[in-house]
Each structure stands twice: as structure tokens, then as C-alpha cells.
Design a protein around this nucleic acid. Sequence first.
DNA 1: CTGAAAGCGCTTACAG
DNA 2: CTGAAAGCGCTTACAG
Lengths: 338, 338
Amino acid sequence: MKQISIKDIARAARVSHPTVSRAIRHSPLVKQETAERIREIANRMGYRPNAVARSLVTRKTGTIGVVVTTIADPFIGEVVSGIEEAANEHGYSVILANSNADPAREINVVQSFQERRVDGILVAASRVGAMYIPMLNRFKIPIVLINNQHPEEFVDSVMIDNVASSLRAVQYLIQLGHRRIAYLGDQYGLQSDTERFTGYREALLHANCPLCAELIVQADGKPEGGGFAMDKLLSLSILPTAVFCYNDMSAIGALSRIRARGLRIPQDISLLGFDDLFISSYLDPPLTTVRQPKRAMGRIATEILLKLFDDPQYEANMKMKGELIVRESTAPPTAGIK
Amino acid sequence: MKQISIKDIARAARVSHPTVSRAIRHSPLVKQETAERIREIANRMGYRPNAVARSLVTRKTGTIGVVVTTIADPFIGEVVSGIEEAANEHGYSVILANSNADPAREINVVQSFQERRVDGILVAASRVGAMYIPMLNRFKIPIVLINNQHPEEFVDSVMIDNVASSLRAVQYLIQLGHRRIAYLGDQYGLQSDTERFTGYREALLHANCPLCAELIVQADGKPEGGGFAMDKLLSLSILPTAVFCYNDMSAIGALSRIRARGLRIPQDISLLGFDDLFISSYLDPPLTTVRQPKRAMGRIATEILLKLFDDPQYEANMKMKGELIVRESTAPPTAGIK
DNA sequence: CTGAAAGCGCTTACAG
DNA sequence: CTGAAAGCGCTTACAG
């Protein structure tokens, strides 16, 4: 069961172990010829360097800690896949931890990252638990946030441009002729929700549409919550002609409630989402939505982190552009409906 | 930037560093009183044990390597979320790697797991690359496979009971009165595809339905491929009255093609999937499917791995039961349609 | 170019 | 109960 080490190779090659170490790492310090001979022997013996021993002396683990709310979320899955890809290209491994938005878990995760001496942390959770922000700070290790800003605490982040994207999306609804547009949001206080709402509000403002309290409902970013919120809208005496949803997950729930009420999309109600999950194009009707470049966001966050390794002062607040993807869930309002 | 170590605490507490080490780990070898004093000091100094140093001597990293085809796949996301949960409960961290079904990547992943000295490996890829099976074997480290068996090479796995589940699902279609049932499969040679096909074949056999070559088509487990395969079925002069799909992803693609042809589900064609992705209940119509206990499969695989740590001889081939979830995409065939 | 020495931050016999 | 010594498998000055 003993693993073979640099010393075993040294013995076999009749050199000292530091020389083996150098040869393995292709250090120019060792004669070409000996280096090759050593590597050949190492190969033959099936040697694999021990990263933990190496980390102990270099004080780098080549490891990135990634905290997510839950990896089962399709949006997050895409982001993480971008992270993993970029990390891998640069020789880093990803340690993944779900926080489940549970403060106790979050503390745990951070402690475990700390003990494992990850080189940096990526946070892809829609709300960074307030509890562990100070911990992260004290940790003094590069961190970049994805779709989550805490300007006072963290300088590095990659975000979707929520306000501009929402503005654009709602303007599109207005161009179609809608005036009575609802906002089906996420929980109150979420930064991205606030921003998407801002875009919505501004679009209405510019178009001289009234901002109608009864048309603003809250959900939880998930289908069920979206469904409940949609039910509220459907109980209004005058229905909205279009609904702008915080995200596609909410829209999926809303869609099924609209259907259940026997209304048609988009003829009776237009529906607009945010995210562009892979599934959204397979809904019936295919969902008009704002595409977030999820994979790219993961990649870029990783690249910022890597920059931070070289230059701890590096600052980047990357704002990504959302892209309006027009599909079939939106159309001009039908005059007749009440 | 110097991290604080056990020696710093030792100095502060006026004891030797091994005593600090023992106190931190709650070893009974140190007097209750001193232990508490030491821990108090460690806490005050914000000490966090260095897991890499510890790993070097204990030869355990408390780390599990997880290989997946891609974490962006919703099925895999759920499985991994179960893995992460169980691993975390036992104090293990998860190192995640996407293989993208790319042999070069796979070799890379295994090497990186080897160098990092993960304690065990979990593979959740529908096809373990043949290339790296020998490597994994040589590695001599506990491995458990999820939905992927290689009986000659690996003894430990957790699988869905493909044959029985498919048999049951197709029998349900037969009970509804279908006789002309298509199988929309995955790539030829995939074990789970072969098994699901076997269940299909047996169900037809038992019911004295003919096995019709034209009703058996191949796809790739994704919506697009499912769509293409469905197109083939839709070009037959006599359409099937029901289609059993390898998985929900394929069914999603098939569904949209059926729709595009102007046919109704389930009135014209019944559609049955496999997996029960979260989205499947939000399709229109909600999809009848076989539910795989994805999260539980991840958990159980992890638990088997943990057992393997204690007892390398432990063998487990866990067969999970699929559950038929009847929704609205299936109904008795309509007599009239041709 | 190569090797002897020291050290990374822990844990584990071994003495006492 | 406590400490001195050794060692886990590497890398990095330092000499030569």
C-alpha cells in the first residue's frame, strides 16, 4: 500500500531526490539527459507526484472553492460548468459545496475551505449569507462573487446587467403595445430582484405607463412560488396583458397557472422570463426571455480569480450583457380581452 | 501573510505543540483543563488547522473525487447534490470534475485525482470511458459507479433497475390498450439503453405484441436527438400510438416534434419518459415517466464509498427501484387514428 | 548541473 | 497527562 515517492525514484536512478523533484517539474536546472532518464524511470514505476506534500511547501493547493446554493439548480449548473472548465484549463481543481442557503452550512463551508487552504473562492449564490461575509473577509483570500454584489466588502464580481436587461425586455413588451404589465418578482430585498424591478419601473416610466401596485407580486424564484404569485395576478378584476417574471423558473410556474385558468399564451397573456434555461425553448409556447451567458459568467469569474492570485489588488466588476431572446410567449395584446 | 500554526498556539499556551495538536482534536490524552485553555487560546487567535499538513501524515485527505459527464445536466445535478450532502455530513469534501465524455479529459481527471490523493472516487457518467478504466484500476482506490456497471472491473455500484422499470412502464402502456409502441433509445451499446430496451422487449413479448424494427429508433439522450428520432417515427406510414423514450430529455425533444406535426398528446400519441426531471411535471402535457431517485442514488453511492474506506473488501451492487409516475402524456389509444 | 540540509504544519510512536 | 523526536513527501535556498 506504500505509495512510491521521489526517494524511490532517486534510488532507482542513482541521483538525489531533489534532482528527481527538479526533473519531474522540468526544471532547467537539471541536465537534459539525466532529466529524461529520471522521467523515464518515474514513468515506468508509475509515479504520481503527491500534491498534498507539494502544497505544504509551496503554500498553494491549486484548488478553488465554489459555494453554490444548490448544484441541482439548472442555472447554477451551467455557471459551475463554466467554472470547472476554466479552472481545469489552468490546472486548478474545483471543490464544490452546497450551502442550501443555510447559515450553519455556510459557516461550515467556509471553515472547510479555510482548512483545506483553497487558493480562492467563487460564490454563486443569489444571496451571500450575511453571517459569513465577515468570515470570508477575515480569511483574506481572493473571492469573486457571481450575480451578487456586496460593494462594501468585496470588490470583485461578475454580474448580469439587471437594470439594462430588464429595461430592454419590458420596453419590448411596451413596443408590442402592452400597457398593463405585471412584475412577478423574487423575495423582497434580493439585489437582483431589486435591480430587475428597477428596469421594469423605468421602462414603464419612460412610456408613461402607470406603476400599479396590484401588478407587482412576489415569489421565490421557483416554479411553485411563481405559480402562487400568478394566481394572485389572475384574481385581479382587470388582468395584466403581460407578465415579466424575475426568472424562467418563476415563469414556468406562472405558465402552468395561466394554462390551468384556460387562458392562452400569448393571445391572452404574454409571458417573459429571465435566464434562458435550456428548457425554456421547449416550453409550450417557447418562452421569450433574457439570456444570461451563464457558462461565460462562470468562466470569467474564474479568470478574474486567477488574476487575483497574481495581483491581489486587481479589481474587476464585470457587467455582462443580457440578450433578449424573442420566442413565442409574447405578442401584441389582444384588444378584446378584459 | 504567515498563517498561524500549532506552534504559535503552543508558545502562547506554554505547552508543546503536540499537546496543542491533541487538544484541538479533542484527544482524551490531554487534561480536560489544559485542553480547554488551549482551545480557548486557539480560538482567540483565529486558528484553523491546516488540512494539507494533516493529510500528509494521516494519508487521508477527506476528499472524494466526483467525475461527471457534465454538471450542467439536470439529472447529474440532482445526483451530485445528493453526493455533496452525504459527503458533507461525514466531513468529506467533494472535488468535482467534468469529463465531457472526452477521453483526454478523463485521463486528466483521473491523474489529478491521483495526485490530490482523493480518498475515493464516484463516477456519474453514463459511459465510463473505456480508456481510463485500467487507470482507475491500477490506482487501487475505492470507486463506486452510478448508473454504470463494469462487472469485470468494478464491484461497487448503484444502479436504477432499468429492466424492471422499463418492463413496468411499457406494461402500463399495454394495459392502456397500446399495441404499436415505439422505443426511442439512446446510442447503441450504452448499457442502460440496452437494459431499458430489454424491458421494452420483454413487455411486448409477454403481451404477444410483435417487435417491430421500424418502431425502434436511436437518439442521444438529448432533446435535439430525441426530436430527430421522433421525426423518423412520424414519417412511418402507420404511426405508433405510443412512444417509450430512453429518458425525459429525449421525450422533451420528441414532444416538440409531435406538436410541430400538429398531433396531440396523448390523444394521438402517448409519450412516456424516464428519469422524472423536475421540469417534466411542467411540460404540456405533464409527462408520464419513470422516476429515478436521483438524490438518493447520490447519497447511497457516497455511503457505499464510505463503507469501502473502512472495509476495502466491501461489495455492493445496489439496485434502486424506479417509480412509474403517471401524468397526462399517456392515455388509451384513440381507435380512429391511422 | 547536483546534492546535503532545512523546513512546510501537522501526527504518532516512544519515554517519562 | 506531557514533551522530544521522527517523519509524512515534497521544494527551496545554499554550497560546491
